[in-house]
Amino acid sequence: MSGFFSFGIGMLLASATLCLFRIGRGPTPPDRAVAIDILGTLVVGFCCMLCLATGLDYLMNIAIAWALVSFIGTIALAKHLEGRTFDD
């Protein structure tokens, strides 16, 4: 693994640590929800860096599927915050 990939993974890890700080500390539930949403987007970045480093093409499929699932999770969290069920 060359320096560039270590650099990329390091930056993403630093970002993820800041997100985790906000998830642990967040005074209100919506703070945590925002941080979880952001963490989900960062995982796509991790998949990209690993894909560049290893050249395995299925990592991109993981990225797409993760983006979809993360979005649905975010919407479900938001509905829950608003005090509604998932039907409407």
Binding site: P30, A33, D37, T74, L77, A78, L81
Partner: peptide, 10 residues
């Protein structure tokens, strides 16, 4: 859309 939904819920 996700950010908008969370902020509205908040």
């Amino acid at each position: 859309v996700g950010a908008h939904a969370i902020v509205r819920g908040a």
